[in-house]
């Protein structure tokens, strides 16, 4: 691959190409290593971790919907300690930037996670999953309230020098207001979208199918919403964006890039086509060659420029 520059910079993290993995759809980075070398990706984003181990929600955790899936995993993860002692050492062969994703019940949880992970050289940046219930605020998501978002980001900011990527919830009235609060709080970059709240009802039992009742919708069905939100946020703030939501092909990734995303993440579609991330990288390259684009960065946000 000569002639075309696919490398991008997200908040000081240099990626050889714009493609990363969406948190929670790629485990801790090694589940797909039988399919291709993870080092082909631009960066690796890991499953969200919490301070303590979480068992996650009772099954069913996944329900298929038209061109999408509802998930209710419940942040099942081994917790910070095992992340540091087991996951990090297992990533020795990973040479690309690794982004850890953090989640918590309180602002203090997030700050502590950020502080502990800052001492870990393997971590190139922190993605902060703010689509979590705020225990102190009656379980309302952190990510839906501008005041809480700013407080949370400020607290994390003062606990780490790592590049800080705030992952936004799409379950809000005005995503640009939340994006601005995150940037005011000290975000170096934004990632969007997380899953959209959805529900499935079992017409036999006449009750919601999932134990948690409300679940998160993702997959091809949500792509137009993600593209629209990236397009709005890219015009509202001046930080790089990692775009995601239903990306399956290079064409989808290009839409996100043109909407204003510097980097793109593949989520649900990994489950369908494990080769999707590498096929997307190739497709981006082919598009640039075909269209005489010398640098993929030229395309970022071109839809509104």
């Amino acid at each position: 691959m000569t002639e075309v520059n696919l490398a991008v910079d997200v908040a000081g993290i240099t990626m050889d190409n714009p493609v990363t993995t969406a948190s929670g759809t790629y485990g801790f980075g090694l589940d797909y290593s039988r399919y291709y070398d993870v080092n082909l990706l631009g960066a690796l984003t890991l499953k969200s971790i919490t301070l303590e181990k979480r068992e996650g929600n009772p099954p069913p955790r996944i329900i298929e919907t038209p061109a999408g899936i509802l998930n209710s995993i419940g942040l099942a993860n081994p917790g910070l300690d095992r992340f540091l002692t087991e996951v990090i050492p297992s990533l020795e062969a990973v040479k690309i930037p690794v982004l850890a994703s953090i989640a918590g019940d309180t602002i203090g949880d997030y700050a502590l996670l950020a502080e502990k992970l800052s001492q870990e050289p393997k971590i190139a940046g922190l993605e902060v999953n703010i689509s979590c219930p705020n225990v102190k605020k009656g379980g309302l998501e952190f990510g839906v309230d501008t005041v809480q978002v700013k407080k949370l980001v400020q607290a994390v900011r003062s606990s780490t020098d790592l590049p800080l990527i705030i992952k936004l919830s799409p379950n809000v009235t005005d995503i640009t207001a939340i994006a601005r609060s995150a940037v005011e709080g000290g975000a170096d970059a934004l990632a969007l979208i997380n899953t959209l709240q959805g529900m499935k009802i079992d017409i036999q039992t006449r009750k919601p199918c999932m134990a948690n009742k409300v679940a998160g919708l993702a997959g091809p069905a949500v792509k137009p919403i993600g593209v629209r939100m990236v397009w709005q946020v890219a015009q509202a703030v001046n930080v790089p964006i990692i775009g995601m939501g239903g990306i399956c092909t290079a064409e989808d990734a290009l839409e996100y890039i043109m909407a204003g995303a510097t980097s793109v993440a593949v989520g649900t579609f990994n489950f369908v086509n494990p080769m999707a991330p590498v096929e997307i990288i190739q497709g981006l390259y082919d598009y640039c060659i075909k269209n005489g684009i010398k640098d993929i960065n030229e395309l970022v946000g071109c839809s509104f420029k």
Partner: peptide
Amino acid sequence: ESVMACGVGACQGCVC
């Protein structure tokens, strides 16, 4: 049996 998504361990969807 369980309803499965990824089949490779990445998604944590099919637990028992």
